[in-house]
Amino acid sequence: MAPAVRLSRQRRFITPEPGETLETLAARVLPDLSANEAAEKLASWNLHIFLLRKPAGLLLGSDVVFIEPPLG
């Protein structure tokens, strides 16, 4: 049993489900936004998924996907 230590707040993230794309993931985590808006927000928060791989935007099972912007 881990000691009850309070971790500082850090940026929240999830990992993809099998077969998930950024669009389906966006719909899952940002259901109140339009599909396009949700996908755009997710992209802007997760540029590492676009800029550090080919093809850009290919969602990998091991990806960390941030579900909020960097903490202000």
Binding site: T15, P16, L52, R53, K54, L60, G61, S62
Partner: peptide, 24 residues
């Protein structure tokens, strides 16, 4: 060992990067 960044000679992510967290 596992990797979240490495690529093969064609620029494609190495196999470990396709693994879900549940696999790890």
């Amino acid at each position: 060992s596992t990797s979240f960044v490495d690529i093969d000679e064609n620029g494609r992510p190495v196999p470990s990067r396709f693994a879900q967290f549940a696999e790890l």
